[in-house]
Amino acid sequence: MAAGVGSQDLLITLIGTYFLGQDRPIPSVFLVRLLQEFDVSPVGARNGLSRLAARGLLVLHKPGRNTYYRLSPEAHNHHAERLSEIVNFGEYPIEWDGTWTVALFTVPEKERAQRHLVRSRLAALRFAMLYDGVWVRPGALKNQVSATLSSLNLQKVTVLSGAAVDGGFRGGNPVSAFALESLRESYEQFAASLQTLRADIDAGRVGAADALLQRARVMQDWRNFPDHDPLLPDELLPHDWPLHEARKAFTEVYDGLAELADHRFRSLLADYSTDLAGEVRSLTSAELLALHLPPKGLGPLTGMPDPLLTKE
């Protein structure tokens, strides 16, 4: 699994992936056994379940001496939205009217914590720093930015929305504020890392147990991109931008491993609930793609802070 992925992340990811649309309680002994496939100890798995229940993401059921869990309604709805967002990412072009939003603010040097908070809030809205105290992003987003910054009691704030920019010089072009080269490298490395796996899938060299592990790993790796890509419109990106090739690699692996991964998941579950095992399956990228309409323009992050991705 990817570095830093813990038992809570895996539990929510796997429950949300394989029990999407299901409301039946899941045996806790199965969830503990499932996480052993990912080298999570029984103690770590039980701790993860308890913490998720304490956070309200899982609902505990305890008829008699048996323990069961299921996603809370809020977590279920959010996971469906988040899963669709992750898989849809990169499928549709971003519409743009050619304008920019510019946020300018002043924070005294002694209030460094406040400065960090402002930058974090702007980054969550996909802004990038052009100059110190000057942040930009394509598209009109005046209301969201004004509401965000006004709540922070800054010394001085100005928001310019709908500004036309005729390029710039000496690094002054707003596009230069975005770390596109490092993002390009990340996309290219991601696609390259899947070449051998794609060949093994085509040749039938992947077993069911490995398919379950690899599919979860690929999802965990890919889900970082929607959170860190600034989602610039095509007009502002280099002509050979690697997002689409990276997405193609992701969907081929995610869908290519689906049948085997589902088989492994059901075979593990059948030891604890044959009825439930007969009902579960994951959705393909095409099915997830159909859950939501394509984006209509440049907006802030479409997902809430993801409980499935919160570090433990």
Rank of each mutant, 00 (worst) to 15 (best):
A2C: 12
G4F: 11
V5Y: 05
L11D: 02
L11K: 01
G21H: 04
G21P: 03
P25W: 06
P27N: 09
Q36C: 00
E37A: 04
V43I: 00
G48S: 02
L49F: 07
S50L: 08
A54F: 08
R55D: 14
L60N: 08
H61G: 01
H61E: 10
T67D: 02
Y68D: 09
A75M: 12
H78S: 13
A80K: 10
E81H: 12
E85T: 10
N88D: 11
G90Y: 03
P93A: 07
W96V: 09
W100T: 03
L104D: 05
F105Y: 15
P108D: 14
K110M: 09
Q114L: 14
Q114F: 01
A123H: 08
A123W: 05
A124N: 06
F127C: 04
V134W: 02
W135E: 05
V136K: 02
V136P: 00
G139R: 06
A140K: 13
A140R: 15
V145D: 00
S146V: 12
N153S: 12
T158N: 08
L160W: 03
G167D: 08
F169V: 11
G172N: 02
N173E: 09
P174I: 05
F178D: 03
A179T: 05
L180P: 11
E181I: 09
E181F: 02
L183V: 04
E188T: 15
E188Y: 03
A191C: 02
A191D: 09
A191V: 01
A192S: 15
D200Y: 02
R205G: 01
A209W: 00
L212W: 10
L212Q: 11
L213M: 01
R215K: 14
R215G: 13
A216T: 14
A216P: 01
R217V: 03
R217P: 00
D221H: 11
W222I: 11
F225S: 08
H228Q: 12
D229A: 12
P233V: 09
P233S: 11
D240N: 13
E245N: 07
A246S: 13
A246F: 04
A249H: 11
V253N: 01
E259I: 08
A261K: 01
R266V: 07
R266D: 05
A270S: 11
A270Q: 06
D271N: 12
Y272R: 07
Y272F: 15
T274R: 13
L276C: 04
V280T: 10
V280M: 07
V280R: 04
R281L: 05
S282P: 00
S282T: 07
S282G: 14
L283T: 06
L283Q: 12
L283D: 11
T284I: 06
E287D: 07
L288Q: 13
H292P: 04
H292V: 12
H292S: 15
H292Y: 09
G297P: 01
P300I: 03
T302D: 06
G303R: 10
M304S: 12
M304N: 11
D306S: 14
T310I: 04
K311C: 01
